[in-house]
Design a protein around this nucleic acid. Structure first.
Lengths: 336, 336
DNA sequence: ACTTGCAATGAAACCGTTTTCATAACATGC
DNA sequence: GCATGTTATGAAAACGGTTTCATTGCAAGT
């Protein structure tokens, strides 16, 4: 591959001039510029990114840490990130962390070793869990679909509590009282927030959430199927299930149908996220929309802001959610 | 951030020695090594990747070009790639090409400008479409889930023709004769290969595939729903639909059910890919398994091979597919 | 004792750009 | 005509490591 030296020789100028021809053509006389460009063209010269980046000590790259790239929701967030990154000339390094803390820590180390300019975290862990020098760590970091709103770095997420509360309220307003919770992974903040939201709605309706109506599990189809199985066998009296993700809900639907239940008449089920498949279920899934792509876009936009040192506006946006009513829920007789 | 010079000074050695301490400790005396490591630790020194990579002219990064990162199938392939990449110390740059040729061309240019060592293409386009100097282009390239087996670079895919043929044969063996095709995007090679497979099976059974039984569309839920709509209104006599992807099939199921059809009794539908959601459909989808993660793994393994100049074995592996029989298909009376 | 070979280390070149600083040429204002 | 400013360009330093090559000290072989 031709180098800047070759071009400069062919054009009869110095390497500096060639460099300027690409970075700021207005600095050159029209005549010189033409000659340089012609020489570059002839030699098919392209500047070495490696050398450029090394010189300027920026990678123009941001690292995205995603717990599971094959998960539809995460994939959509990444898609949103990607769009904005491309628009702004950033490259995306993605690592599938498998929710492993060490992998995540290695990720943030990548910016300390100049392999990425910043990191967007999609996992649960806040920066503080990933770096020993807690508050001394100043790397560009943005946390998407996380939960911490009191951090010093940008976070973009939804109000899980409110979204969950509104979903539960909807179910309660339709007369449901024995409501099972198909929760996600126990101990996860997002799980806790949604659970709190569910509980708040119930208490507003004067019903207390019994422990035996809660079943934890993975945020996945299989997780939902299993949780539903256990919950169904333990509490056959439930008239509805609040699932903490669409995948969980769809898994539960499968289980319910395998058990011969007719949905939604025998059992109402709601999801969370509004992934596309929910719309194509049988019955189509009532859920709460989480703007996944948008979250990604906003996260990357914020990242651009911090990388350019021109962050402005809200640093902890809470993106709007929305109830999506379809047919997986039915009204139930008010208890006497 | 501390630099190698600082460490060398603190340890009282030359920078070269510090460098060796990290790259090949066996070259140092135990005593020196200990001193260097201690100094590095004390200063929290980490070598600058940027400088290292620049020096050795490798990025340890491979670019994966995916037409749509939010698509479940692609996401699974990426997941497989990621696993092997991580195992081998490679980073993954991913760009969502939106199936855009210019974006893809820019992608392959990234290896010419030393931004990536090689590229794994998940889109349809072969290298030859993306580079003017067709055969002169020698960048490390591997094509996954593509179709060309006569290229000089590695390709990893399935036998679309055979897989499609076996699926169609299955349907035919169950008595179906009026079979609609929910095809993918017209003009795509993969679409053509699967169509050829379908047709071959039918001809083996003495039935010819009428044009009016073929409907093209996007490889998506919405695409499937629309195609099914059109096909159903045009050819109400079809007893089965062969879809070219699970998403198409699931979209079609939705349409069929909205129209009041009972599945599989009124209409059998088959998919292609075996994405997880197919298992949770109602009815559960009969489909043909395509080993997406495995394809990614093999692709990345091959990439490692070419990057290390030690490619061995089959360079055009055809991964095995498998019929997955569930409940979206039923037997039909043999025509008299 | 004298070469030979090997292990441990350091000095310095090198990777391919960008950027700073100096310079030359030329126009401008007085 | 002379100081002054401006524009176009080049020389060389700098970025932070790795690697080559030379050197030194020491053990082994003859």
């Amino acid at each position: 591959m031709a180098q800047i030296r070759d071009v400069s020789k062919l054009a009869g100028v110095s390497p500096a001039t060639v460099s300027r021809a690409f970075s700021d053509p207005s600095k050159l006389s029209a005549e010189t510029l033409k000659r340089v460009l012609a020489a570059a063209e002839e030699l098919n010269y392209k500047p070495s990114s490696l050398a450029q980046l090394f010189r300027v000590k920026r990678t123009n790259t941001v690292l995205v840490m995603v717990p599971d790239i094959a998960n539809v929701l995460f994939a959509r967030v990444v898609s949103g990130i990607e769009r904005i990154a491309a628009d702004n000339g950033y490259n995306l390094l993605v690592v599938d962390t498998k929710d492993n803390k060490d992998v995540e820590a290695a990720g943030i180390e990548m910016v300390e070793t100049y392999r990425a300019d910043g990191v967007i975290q999609l996992g649960e862990r806040a920066l503080r869990w990933l770096h020993r020098d807690a508050e001394k760590c100043t790397i560009p970091f943005v946390h998407a679909i996380g939960t911490g709103l009191d951090e010093s770095y940008p976070t973009v997420t939804i109000n899980n509590y409110e979204a969950a509360r509104s979903m539960a309220s909807y179910l309660l307003s339709l007369g449901h009282r024995k409501i099972g919770i198909l929760a996600g992974i126990k101990g996860r903040l997002v799980t806790q927030h949604r659970l709190d939201g569910f509980r708040a709605a119930m208490e507003a309706f004067g019903v207390t959430l019994e422990d035996s109506l809660i079943e934890y599990g993975a945020y996945s189809l299989a997780g939902g199927a299993q949780s539903a199985q256990r919950l169904l066998s333990r509490r056959g009296d439930a008239t509805a299930f609040l699932a903490m993700s669409d995948e969980i809900a769809i898994g539960a639907i499968r289980t319910a149908q395998d058990l011969g239940l007719r949905l939604p008449d025998d059992l109402s089920i709601t999801g969370f996220d509004n992934i596309e498949f929910g719309k194509y279920c049988e019955p189509p899934l009532t859920t709460v929309m989480q703007p996944a792509e948008r979250i990604g876009e906003v996260a990357m936009t914020l990242m651009c802001g911090v990388l350019r040192n021109e962050l402005k506006g809200e640093i902890h946006p809470l993106l709007p959610t929305e109830l999506v009513i379809r047919n997986s829920v039915c009204r139930v007789e008010e208890p006497s």
